[in-house]
Amino acid sequence: MKKQNKLAGLQRRKAISGYLFIMPFIVGFLAFMVKPFFESLYMSFCDIELGPGKFDKIFAGLGNYKWAFTIDAEFNRLLVEETQKMFFNALAVMVFSFFVALILNQKFKGRAFVRAVFFLPVILSSGVILGVEYDNSLMSSMQTAIEENAGNASITGAIQNILVTSGVGVAAFEKVFEVVERIYDVAISSGIQIIIFLSGLQTIPGSMYEAASIEGCTAWESLWKITFPMISPLFLVNWIYTIVDYCMRSDNEIMNKISDQMITYLHYGYASAMSWIYFLIVIVIIAISSFIISKGVYYYD
């Protein structure tokens, strides 16, 4: 009995020190996440007027939301565009990073170098640099000039012409070609995802492949029957990471519009409303897609 009490005391002490360790997070979460979270929800229904030393919230009902959807000329368009772009971008990143991780997991000369190069964009194309690169209109104008001079001899262009004129599933093809054209975008935003897939691939025991190949499994079959299920949990991780990462990118036009409205025009209520609309859309996309993906996830334990 006495011993049990002491154990409970030790457990209590550990619980207390555990709480002490995560204290900073709890404080930050409550002060800088939960409070502003609900406050900005409330602010999205208000007009904010700044005065010296204080600000007033004047309740305006759904005014900000109405403004966003019906009066603002570009918000609807941007919203649809960015959401679409996010979805296709995320899909392309998943396929690309899985494919690259498969290749980088094999042994060949210069593997360390190639890995380093693929990881480079995580460092160099983060934050503002991405946005700056986007304005690089010299590059694109030069490119179009070169293309015109060369008589449009690019391979993808030719294939696109053939496929589009043949009229089979035009819309789907167009999406694919859009992705192909933005392959640079995809490549520079899939650094972390490649590493995550790689780490997953390295945890698959080699004995599994060995057993499969003895049973007569081809490499193609073991890709689908071993590799794919074994790293399927990472598809979920990567999917969520890619979408969240896309929201944070500095060339995301909605986010730029929001921070413009906030910092330049001081429309705090309207900025809150827009960010809440976008946030809800993103959360819904994440929730639905995670639910679908998690149906197919296989946990090997």
Binding site: A15, K35, Y278, V282, I283
Partner: peptide, 27 residues
């Protein structure tokens, strides 16, 4: 460490990863 509500707080960490900071930035 084991302590009460640990799972809840960790879910909050995941939430922090997922919520874009722009949502709370105005406030």
């Amino acid at each position: 460490f084991q302590f009460p509500l640990k799972k809840f707080w960790f879910a909050c960490v995941i939430l922090v990863i997922i919520i874009p900071p722009q949502t709370v930035s105005t406030s």
